[in-house]
Each structure stands twice: as structure tokens, then as C-alpha cells.
Amino acid sequence: MSDITTNSQPRSVRRSRPVSSYLLRRPKLRLLSLLALPMTWIIGVYIFSLFLLLITAFWNVDPFTSLVSPGFNLENFSLVLTNPSYIATSVRTLLIALTVTLVCIMFAVPLGIFMAKIARPWLRNALAVAITLPLWAGYLVKIIAMRLVFTEEGFFNWAMSPIGVRGPGFSVPIVILTLTYLWFPYMALPVYTAIRQIPPNLFDASSDMGAKGFTTVWRVVIPLIVPAMIAGSVFTFSLSLGDYLAARFTGGATQMIGSIIAANINLNPPVAAAYSMVPITFVVIYLAVARRTGSLERM
């Protein structure tokens, strides 16, 4: 580092760039000017507003007028942790988010292998477009589309009626399906990229040593793409955890964490704030586990 700076100093002086040479002698100022903008954004806008929201979790609500007033009590937290309906919703949301992540992985891996190793270039490009194309459609549009497909007299039941199959109606499975549909690209793309980057000679080596296709996938491909799967799962998991519109429009009476926060945001903001700690806790735990696997460093 110091070598480089001493070497480049004469050149910058010669060209006489006052700002550069001023900054060159002041590494701290240099760092500050580099980080000023992103830090203002992260701390000033992002962290601060999050902090403002979370602090209301300790505030009081006047039982008479429902007005919120600053104060300190832990009642909102005890409500969140003792209300059986809230606990059930937390557990249900966690399971939905984990299932969505698993389903995304199960779809993404075979698709990724096919696209990277088997498909011809034109098909590979066509599939890449097909995966990313839904990202261009509005989020709400996609949810409403799923609602229309799975209504009682909707497309699914109509298409399946010749073979006597009927959809489950709006319930948890449809919510999982909708969320999978919404977040699949975030899993499929990193997994596909990771598989493409596996050197072809690893497949040859595996084959030379007598491994069949499935063994190669299981012993060679999967271990190499774990970091990509975890990177994708950070998206599928945390986005599913925070979603509530999918549950509202395709879940029937299904509640998710977001449904309860949305219901309370006008009625009882402190409870909404306290309850929003739950998904934050889940995500922090998830990230901590992901970090221990070492895959976040390679993202």
C-alpha cells in the first residue's frame, strides 16, 4: 500500500491535480469522501427510520382514544410472545418461508444443470429470459394472477377437470406456490451461474472415476453450489418472511407475520413494531447460520 503511494506520488504532482494530491496526504478524509454518500443513506435514512419504528414497540397506547404516546413498557412484547394466535402465525410464517426456499432449490438445481450443461445455447438463452421475464411484471399483478388461476372456477380447476383433479382452494399450499413463483428468479439465477462456473473437466474426472450422472450431481455439483444456494435462499427466505399480500389474496384465512403487522399498523402501532422484531430475529438467526457455513464470504 505505502509502496504504491510513494511510487505514484511524483506522477500526480507532476500533473498538478490539487484535489487528488490534497486527498492523497489525508487517508481518513479520502475514506470519508468515499463513504459519505452510502453512509448517509444507510444510517440517516435506513437505520434511523428503522430505529424510529422499532422504538415505538416500547411506547404506550391510550386505551380510550387509541392515541400513541412515548413511554417505556414491555407489554407489547409480552403480548406478541403470549398470544397463541401470534405464536402460531410466527411458526406458520417460518415454515412457509423455509418451504418456499426448499421448493425453489428443488426447482433451481435441475434447471440450472440442464441450462448450463445440457441445453443448446439458443434454449439456454430462451430459458434465461423465461426465468427473468416475470421480474418485469408488477408484484401485485403476479399475485392477482395466481388468485385468478386458483379460484374455484378459475383456470386450474378448469384445466384439471378432465382428469378429475381439483385445486386445494385458497390455503397455505397456494401461498407457498405463489411465493415460489414470486421469488424463484432470485434462486435460479445464482444457482445457474454457479453451475456454469464449474470447470467441465470436473465432470470428466468424475465420469473417469466411474461416477454416474446422479452421483456426479450429488458428490460434485451440489457441494460446489452450496454457497449459491445459500445466497439465493437469503432472498427467498427473507422475502417470504416479510410478505403478506400473497397470504391476503391467495391464502384464504391464512395469516402470516406481515398480515398481523399490516392489521396493527393503524390500530396499534406499538404492537406492530414489537411484532416486526420477530421476522428480524428470524432473519438475523438465518444470516448467522449462513455465515457459519462460510458462504456469505463468497457471495
Binding site: 397506547v61 387509541s66 403480548l79 394466535s85 401470534y86 402465525t89 398481523i260 392489521a263 396493527n264 396499534n268
Partner: peptide
């Protein structure tokens, strides 16, 4: 009060 109703309503939906 309405606050009681809000809290009670929160226990209705499973």
C-alpha cells in the same frame, strides 16, 4: 374499549 376489541380481534384468526 376499541383497544380491547383490537386486542381481542388479534386472537380470533389462527
Amino acid at each position: 374499549s376499541f383497544q380491547d376489541w383490537t386486542n381481542a380481534w388479534a386472537t380470533v384468526k389462527g
